[in-house]
């Protein structure tokens, strides 16, 4: 068996986001031990039924997230959702969903290693993010449950509000994390 590594394991001294706090006003916490499944289906009814039976979650509408227990569903495109779940359940739930959708035009893809997830919090959150993202990310404009695919610091990013007014979850493609950390650190350190 090979050792599984996340990009956080290989980020070196000096490039590290620090012990989570990268500046007085900004706390970055890598989201660990979570798996990601990309759910694509042209038949939303079939996908809806499969999800409800398997994890008891309904498909959220455009720009929204829904969650239940350890499961989070993020809207991505009109025919695509991202399911965040405990890493150890990724294979089994992925296989179960695939089985339930065998006769529909659907695809379940393990995206656990494709994206890097970060939780960013702190008083300076909106100020920092809005220096690299053209969306209005202040709490009243980006309420809990809101999902946006956009660009942050010139990198494609999925942003969503997991609740409250002081946290945003951010998912970026693996490989961009060093750039984003450098940008976050530089932006937050004033």
């Amino acid at each position: 068996m090979l050792e599984h590594r996340t990009p956080f394991d290989s980020i070196r001294e000096g490039e590290d986001p620090g012990s989570a706090t990268i500046a007085r006003e900004l706390i970055v916490t890598p989201v660990r031990d979570k798996g990601l499944l990309l759910l694509q289906s042209a038949c939303l009814q079939a996908l809806q039924t499969a999800l409800e039976r398997e994890i008891g979650l309904r498909l959220p509408p455009a720009q929204q997230a829904s969650w239940h227990g350890p499961y989070v569903l993020l809207w991505q495109t009109p025919a695509q959702w991202l399911l965040q779940l405990p890493a150890r359940e990724c294979d089994s739930i992925g296989a179960a969903l695939s089985d339930r959708l065998a006769s529909a035009l659907a695809a379940i893809t393990d995206f656990s290693d494709a994206l890097v997830a970060l939780e960013v919090g702190g008083a300076g959150l909106a100020d920092v993010f809005m220096s690299g993202c053209s969306l209005d990310l202040r709490a009243d404009a980006f309420p809990p449950g809101r999902v946006a695919r956009t660009s942050l610091a010139d990198v494609p990013a999925i942003l969503w509000n997991p609740g409250g007014s002081d946290r945003i979850h951010c998912l970026i493609e693996r490989g961009f994390e060093t750039h984003l950390f450098a940008w976050l650190k530089g932006t937050a350190t004033r």
Partner: peptide, 18 residues
């Protein structure tokens, strides 16, 4: 603005970078 030096444009790293 910030688009100078290493942040001029994002550079991706492969899983084998280190």
């Amino acid at each position: 603005a910030r688009h100078v030096g290493p942040l001029y444009r994002p550079l991706r790293r492969t899983p084998l970078d280190s």
